[in-house]
Design a protein around this nucleic acid. Structure first.
Lengths: 134, 134
DNA sequence: CTTGCTCCTCAAGTAACTTGAGGAGTTACG
DNA sequence: CGTAACTCCTCAAGTTACTTGAGGAGCAAG
């Protein structure tokens, strides 16, 4: 009835070490053990792990996932908290993406200026390095 | 002639703790001490710290900064290494930005679906939660 | 029966700092 | 001149989300 941590790992795209870690920090309550003392996973555990894995793929923080799991477990009054959490996360992602866009422009400009003008190749005189020293 | 770590911090937008950290990991060689045993910073140190700070603003990794500092110090043969490093970093940033764009779309869709259809507000039935459980 | 997995439990390492404890010297104010 | 507030010092541990490794035991296949 129970599968080993290795089998659970395959089914959830998590490594065994990660699964043990999730148990340790309480994302997964301690799972049953078979006679030989090894962890035995049942279907609900797999389901929960898949949920966690999907949240991590969406780069939710562990504490956010805790809250989302509470919603899934029906511990939350309504699902609005999950939506708000998602919207908050979306804002973080959007802000970071905007930063990265600016970063891309800056880096591209720097690299291009070096390509264009650093014919000498003298390291200390590189326009890119000079830019960084600004 | 030397300024305190606090003054250096103001001039470089780094905190004193960060400046000590950079010294510890060898980004900044151990700076002189005044009679009372406190660190004393001179202009070249400030220049170097500003360089480091700018690199961090551009989210270069510490090891990358080490290499860039070598170029600034004239330790590198040519500045091409700096340009290549910048281009490599640019690619990483670009890839990450693309990921975040996809993430934004997914999160926005999820949040919107909850807003649209979760009239009941029953947490466990939320379409957003169901999506995460997929 | 022996080789090779897989599992177990700690403990420490990763990136780039930040935070805190405990202690000493310094600066400003009255 | 005293004292309160500030800045500095060092060293250690905490942060995030895991990964890696040591050391040891059981299980499955040939």
């Amino acid at each position: 009835m129970g599968m080993t941590i290795g089998e659970a790992a395959v089914r959830t795209q998590c490594t065994p070490a990660t699964i043990r870690y999730y148990e340790e920090i309480g994302l997964l309550r301690p799972v049953g053990r078979s006679a030989n003392g090894r962890r035995a996973y049942a279907q609900p555990d797999i389901h929960r792990l898949r949920f966690i894995r999907r949240c991590r793929d969406l780069s939710f923080a562990i504490d956010d996932i805790r809250a989302l799991l509470d919603v899934m477990d029906g511990q939350a009054v309504s699902c609005l908290s999950a939506r708000d959490l998602t919207l908050g996360h979306l804002e973080t992602v959007r802000a970071r993406r905007t930063e990265l866009e600016a970063l891309e422009r800056t880096l591209a400009t720097m690299a291009a200026s070096c390509t264009d003008t650093c014919v000498s190749g003298v390291a200390a005189e590189c326009v890119l390095i000079e830019d960084l020293a600004t």
